[in-house]
Design a protein around this nucleic acid. Sequence first.
DNA 1: GGACACGCTATACGGGTGTACAGTCAGCAA
DNA 2: TTGCTGACTGTACACCCGTATAGCGTGTCC
Lengths: 216, 216
Amino acid sequence: MIDEPAFEDLTARARIRDAALRLFAERGMQAATIRDIAARAGVSLGLVRHHFGSKEELRDACDEYALAQGMRIKNEALSAGMMGSGIPKPGFLPEVHPTLVLLMQYFARSISDGSAAAEAMFEQFVAVTEAWVAQQFPGEFDDPKAVAVLITAMQMGPMLLHQQVSAALGVELLSRAGHIRSSKAFIDIYAQPWLSKDSAEAAKAAYDQLEKGETP
Amino acid sequence: MIDEPAFEDLTARARIRDAALRLFAERGMQAATIRDIAARAGVSLGLVRHHFGSKEELRDACDEYALAQGMRIKNEALSAGMMGSGIPKPGFLPEVHPTLVLLMQYFARSISDGSAAAEAMFEQFVAVTEAWVAQQFPGEFDDPKAVAVLITAMQMGPMLLHQQVSAALGVELLSRAGHIRSSKAFIDIYAQPWLSKDSAEAAKAAYDQLEKGETP
DNA sequence: GGACACGCTATACGGGTGTACAGTCAGCAA
DNA sequence: TTGCTGACTGTACACCCGTATAGCGTGTCC
């Protein structure tokens, strides 16, 4: 986890990287200045350059670290059975809370900037979902790739909108209370078929016709 | 729509506002400079300040305009029956495509910056979804507010991840082909109950127990 | 003990940014 | 004509940013 060992115990290089990750996530790649990063890390301006060369290289280091941390948490979640039934295992999320919030904020920034790291992270998440869909619902869908991509994007929605969702619910989404409340709602959402088989067939037929025809 | 009437026919003030909206969406609030905005609008640097006072006030004007445009499109979608059955009406999205992509990019930027406009837009979307849930599934959920908030966030996921989704699918999401392909997948997703009633009951019971007990 | 490597600091420089302001020009009322 | 208003321009300024570089202190190897 990022915030252990204690901040003061980290090497200066690690402190700079962590401070950069936090400031990039909070303010964006452009607005976060090297001077602020150095100040938060408790080092001089020159040391940042000494260790990372340039702001761009510092950003690359943060990307790499965030990607590795994200994949580590995802794997822990998988081995903890978090996604076995399609819903989080009770109690898992609150444990990783601080790191996860930070990574999601950083990830949301990267998405706005269209970084390669964001795209790589998304594609790896899609691969996991695709394998899960193929195993859980084999032969069920005409276009399993598109289903996996869209499910992944939909699952990320509440995370990316973490701030707005928390405000609308009146409770911090990744706190214990928020986690329980949202998980219960997720169960209801996942258990509910939102479209009847008849409606689905009719809608699909309409799109088939649209696909053959001209631009409306 | 933003790109009609023709760009050249707009007043200088409107041209500046449109150019700012585009550059803010493309590069972010910080990276987009007043000089670039003035250049794209075809006016001098001073005129931007003359009309809007400061960069912050220009940003506020863009927020207000984007919010109004987003609500206008949403209302058109509603009146066009786009959300009547929970799925987009064939042919609607491609029509509003250019404006919608622009607004979504701008909105994604605003979300990263945690602007008041982004929060307002999200809350208004939640209100619409909440009314729809109450009408379509009355008394179905224990926590309809949370269900509405999370559904709204999930529906926004693919839009916010528009760039990554398009890359993963190999087709521009809001093009005609991408719209048809994703809509078909959405139909499958919405028609599929992802959790059996039994599993849902078991999971809910687990969370109820977690709620009563101590921190795990 | 001398030389070297490395972590680290302090200071300076060029460039780009938001802001401020004086001034030009067209349209219009008296 | 005269005077005034408002859209619009060009330039100057103070500031902050990323980058560059010279130098300091400390441990370590031969």
